[in-house]
Write a protein that binds this DNA or RNA. Sequence first.
RNA 1: GCACUCAUAGCUCAGCUGGAUAGAGCAUCGGUUUGCGGUACCGAAGGUCACAGGUUCGAAUCCUGUUGGGUGUACCA
Length: 566
Amino acid sequence: MKIKSQLTKIIEQALLDANIEAKNIVISDATKPEFGDYQFNGVMRLAKILKKNPREISNTVIEHIDTTDMIAKVEVAGPGFINIWLNNHWLSQEANSIIDDKRVGVGYVETQKKIVVDYSGPNMAKQMHVGHLRSSIIGDTLATLFEFLGNEVIRQNHIGDWGTQFGMLIAYLEEQNTDGNSQELKDLEQFYKDAKVRFDQSEEFANKAREYVVKIQSGDEHCLRLWQSFINASLGHCEEVYEKLNVNLTRDDVRAESFYNNQLIKVIETLREKNISTTSNGAECVFLDGDETPIIVQKGDGGFLYATTDLSALTFRDKELNADRICYVVDARQAQHFKQVFTIAKQAGMVREDVALEHIGFGTMMDKGGKPFKTRDGGTVKLVDLLNEAVVRAKKTIKDRDIHSQEELDVVAKAIGIGAVKYADLSISRESNYIFSWDKMLSFEGNTSLYMQYAYARIQSILRKHNAEITGNIIIGDEIEHRLTLMLLKFEDTLTKASIDATPHSITAYLYDVVTLFMKFYELNPILKEGIDEETKMSRLQLATLTGEVIKKGLDILGIDVVAKI
RNA sequence: GCACUCAUAGCUCAGCUGGAUAGAGCAUCGGUUUGCGGUACCGAAGGUCACAGGUUCGAAUCCUGUUGGGUGUACCA
């Protein structure tokens, strides 16, 4: 239900009929219930241009607003705000029409786009750590969201599988005589440490490691095979995490750094041809206006850097994947890097002018003391460990409820634990750092996944108790039902905005509003109690059902499961 | 040094891109006709939106400066 665009049309028509010229008009949500459902504030700006009293203009405008269908009434308030109330009859009609809709009333985008979402991007030399959490789940949510709205999404997992460290790793792998599935690779962190120790201790080993770097790059079969088995094992670890996290990344989405390897020299050639890069201190550099330091695209020794790979990836995404929009879900600390790379790519014509290049930056996860999240001894926290702990803690918070079998408990604990971690992350505006707190995220209160899941479970409980067909229509009987119904119909507008701004937290904020309204409604308007007439009961059941569907779909986009019982 | 970014209630965070009396949750205090799941709901209290100027009918939001955090800054990714 595209409510805002419908309202915009109505207001535009009214302005036209009133002979007032206006463009880019914006309808916003009312700031308070007393002010109606929506408001149009644009008249004040118009008043200046027209040199007329804003209230006078507003009064003229509202005379031309069509109040026969969607809008119940309009009012001029304050200095010239136009407040808009929607019609209950219209609201219930719209709500009724989406009760059986799988998409709960959400339509598709007007112009479908091809969107590349680059996210997760783990390093194959190491185990995934908490730093990968945000990229993985924000990226995955955006990908799901774009897709749901009807866009074509290409997920790209730009894994780090290339570089000098792999010489050391495969030399060690060979020495350990393992096949990539063995015990040694179970803990990549430890494997890396052991290899490093060996590297530092033995001159012979170190030389071999360096030799192997060159050998992989020149395509030596033996070394490539070792490398491949190492990557496979490492990717297996990542998939385990994706599985736990409910993140939809598969091997098909992997487009590794190594993939661009033989294209890198072309990047340099293009930059040279177009006189964008110059040689400075032996390295190939791009000097951008306003930057003191250059972006190095080729080292003095001929090696390439990550800017080179990113430029190559951009070329590929434009020329081969034909993307309209490319989103990089990467730590905010790399803002400068992406700004530079994007500028160069456009200058060099590696990417068409009209392709939207976006760095979807996010802040750092902090501990209670406001310091970057680490283990007690200062090491990085492994993502698997964090997720396992989440499930264990979730189990503790629900185990005394005593309504589950052991197997059910496991399923529910997973949905709650993983959901809590994801929701806590996604509900914060993504660019700010956030403080990680188990207590807060596993609370039933406030804007948490548990509050949403609990509301969903209560709704399911009502439906189970009713245990019969639900017929009839939603009939809006009071203010709270009006607000709840409208909120449910705002789902599409919310998703659209979240998709344009790439802000998952606007979805969680919306769901929280939905649930809060539902709880109020539920408190005020009993559904199954005795003495309620059939029509009202059915209407309320329908409203509860629809609320449940919206919660479920909303959480689904966030990659969070709901459960029928908690 | 330069650049970017942030500063909102005791704490954790929103604030829809310039609109009406700045909103939630936690914590605190008080309340809820025998309650469809009370891990719920209602209410109170809590603010110089870091500070100082500017722009205008109107600023937490835009501009300038100051202070204080964070981050990035030539061959790692």
